[in-house]
């Protein structure tokens, strides 16, 4: 067992699960989407990105790319939240909430690709 692989797999999966946890629920209902869950998703996604730094293989490059996409989507969702909550006159209404959740949905797709890559890597490693 390799501790580095454990940590890497842990964070990749955790990023996907956090993201899913935030995403699940009625898209326009603010009560079903916790801001702390989004915060955790952003933090875990950032850590995952940094963990993927410096791998020069092709699969490593795609890994990094998926993480960067997830970061971008999640940070965009956060900015929309902050804008709706603090700046916008209409507040955190159904429209704002749905765009936040759909942005995180995009990040979820990227995270799922990341997980698929992880699985592919693991399977091909065993075959070798």
């Amino acid at each position: 067992m390799n501790l580095e692989k454990v940590i890497f797999g842990f964070f990749v999966l955790l990023a996907a699960t956090m993201n899913l946890g935030f995403f699940i629920g009625d898209i326009a209902d603010a009560n079903l989407h916790s801001e702390y869950e989004l915060y955790a998703a952003v933090v875990v996604s950032l850590i995952t990105t940094v963990l993927k730094f410096g791998d020069r293989t092709q699969i490593g490059a795609v890994h990094l790319a998926t993480s960067l996409v997830a970061d971008l989507q999640l940070i965009a969702a956060t900015i929309v939240w902050v804008y709706a909550d603090y700046v916008s006159s209409s507040g955190l209404d159904a429209h704002a909430m749905s765009s936040i959740v759909s942005l995180s949905g995009g990040a979820l797709l990227a995270n799922l690709v990341s997980v698929v890559l992880l699985v592919i890597e693991t399977v091909s490693f065993h075959r070798r």
Binding site: Y36, V43, I47, V50, F53, G54
Partner: peptide, 23 residues
């Protein structure tokens, strides 16, 4: 790649510190 690989640990430490203190 050298920069990315060497900066991995410091960046993760920084992110974790920020996450905990902000939270």
């Amino acid at each position: 790649f050298l920069i990315m690989r060497r900066m991995r640990t410091p960046l993760i430490v920084l992110i974790i510190i920020f996450a905990i203190t902000t939270f």
